[in-house]
């Protein structure tokens, strides 16, 4: 009978507990963002089927520069990020103003069929919980036909 394999035990100590406790969350967040940014760029390069040499050529930089960019430690300038966006056709920096909240109108057809009679389909749109008919100006409440 095959014995069940055991996994390495979890080793705990005061030294490790103190070490892994993050005190400066701002610095941690910065490191996290830097590494995630590098990962996004790396994945975008892979998605295009490029290797680092090709990416370096497209960016007109040395391969060693790409190594720095993907290390997760690099402090990018805005211009470099814009150039990378342009070459990889991705968005890394969102410079657009956020849209104001809008009411989005949904337009759809409802065909109501009952056992006794069927109705002609009407075009309705939903506005603030009310069904508004496109075929006439009659205001309908939600659920009414």
């Amino acid at each position: 009978m095959e014995t069940k394999k055991k996994q390495a035990k979890v080793y705990k100590s005061k030294v490790l507990e103190d070490f892994f406790t993050v005190k400066d969350t701002k610095e941690y967040k910065r490191t996290e963002n830097n590494m995630l940014l590098a990962l996004r760029i790396e994945k975008a390069v892979e998605a295009r089927g490029w290797n680092r040499t090709r990416f370096a050529k497209e960016m007109n930089v040395e391969s060693s520069v790409i190594t720095k960019w993907l290390s997760g430690t690099h402090n990018f300038t805005c211009n470099t990020l814009f150039d990378i966006e342009d070459v990889l056709k991705i968005c890394l920096v969102n410079t657009k103003e956020p849209h104001n909240t809008q009411t989005i109108l949904n337009t759809f057809e409802i065909k109501i069929v009952t056992p006794k009679q069927s109705f002609q389909p009407h075009s309705y749109y939903l506005n603030g919980g009310n069904f508004m008919s496109l075929s006439n100006t009659t205001k309908l409440h939600y659920g009414e036909s």
């Binding site: 070490f19 892994f20 993050v22 005190k23 400066d24 610095e27 941690y28 490191t31 996290e32 590494m35 995630l36 590098a38 990962l39 790396e42 190594t67 993907l70 290390s71 997760g72």
Partner: peptide
């Protein structure tokens, strides 16, 4: 420097994996 290495280890563990580029 130790804190930075710690942060990188934790990000790899919880967010990104141990990518070769790191």
């Amino acid at each position: 420097e130790l804190e930075n290495i710690r942060n990188r280890i934790k990000v790899m563990a919880h967010n990104t994996g141990a990518r070769e580029t790191f």
